[in-house]
Design a binder for these strands. Structure first.
Ligand code: FES
Ligand code: FES
Lengths: 150, 150
DNA sequence: AATATAAAAGACTTATTTATCCTTTATATC
DNA sequence: GATATAAAGGATAAATAAGTCTTTTATATT
């Protein structure tokens, strides 16, 4: 459903936002290594995000990426849109040219509520809200340093 | 989540199964045109499905693809496995290396129940069951010839 | 036996996604 | 002003997915 690029982007932005209070700026290198994302690849993605005003950046020593006050008001769908250039939630799970309640495919009744739930979460919460929720719930953006149970 | 190839495969098998009573065999050409799938591409996919014993085929005039009694006992996950060679339901929606209740990503609580529902449907119903359900519910495998409402 | 039909097989092209590398530009610090 | 640091920009490579084309093989019909 999401490409690697947008998964990386979402995790990077939320990670940046979580870290915000501690260290103001993070280098692309640091973000990549924190989240186990190839550094050169996440660098390209971060570039896009800056252009789309999803995150902010500053060059040179002590520079890096950071979240401005305004950046925090965006939502996850804005990130996806910036990276993909399209809405990933439209379209039928089974490949029909339209997805609608009136002309449902055999799994529409399962897929549609899921898509709606996720779409709402990705639209209604700001990045700031989302990052706060992550802190409160203790959910993960990486499993680095975590004693993983499966 | 699914590739085009497996979406095509699933729709093709269910379409074949639905048509079973009427015309015993269908050509790849017919399947492609019925479902709006590039003919050369669906031909390749059908070839794979025959090899994997998901569907059956017969060469020559009056030949084509069809569902044997045994073929009907497979399920959707078998189709996906035959085409993709892997389980598409494992893996975290946000790209974490594991998906588990113990180490959830921020959307795991939304994604996990959805994946489970779909996985069960794709595992517990045989192709025959699934096709019957489609007939009963009037859900679509194509929108060809349908007066589409969005 | 000749012919026509339809799948099987294999090689190939195109498009998209993922990823890497190298150069340039901005800027803080010495 | 020289130097080191970090993002920006651009080109290119590698991998995967999507799709096409041509030839071969099996088989029913005449
Ligand atoms: S019609 Fe297939 S998911 Fe909605
Ligand atoms: S941990 Fe991300 S979907 Fe389960």
């Amino acid at each position: 459903m999401l490409t690697n690029a947008s998964k990386y982007a979402i995790r990077a932005v939320l990670h940046l936002t979580k870290k915000m209070d501690e260290a103001t700026k993070m280098s692309g290198k640091e973000i990549g290594s924190d989240l186990d994302i190839p550094e050169a690849f996440i660098a390209k993605i971060l570039q896009k995000l800056v252009k789309a005003n999803i995150i902010s950046s500053h060059k040179g020593p002590k520079g890096g990426f950071y979240m401005s006050k305004e950046n925090l008001n965006n939502n996850i769908n804005d990130i996806i849109w910036a990276v993909e250039g399209r809405d990933i939630f439209e379209g039928c799970f089974m490949g029909l040219p339209v997805c609608s309640d009136e002309n449902p495919c055999p799994v529409h009744h399962i897929v549609a509520p899921f898509k709606e739930k996720l779409y709402m979460k990705f639209n209604d919460l700001t990045i700031k809200d989302f990052a706060d929720e992550i802190k409160d719930n203790g959910t993960h953006l990486t499993i680095k340093g975590i004693n993983v149970k499966i």
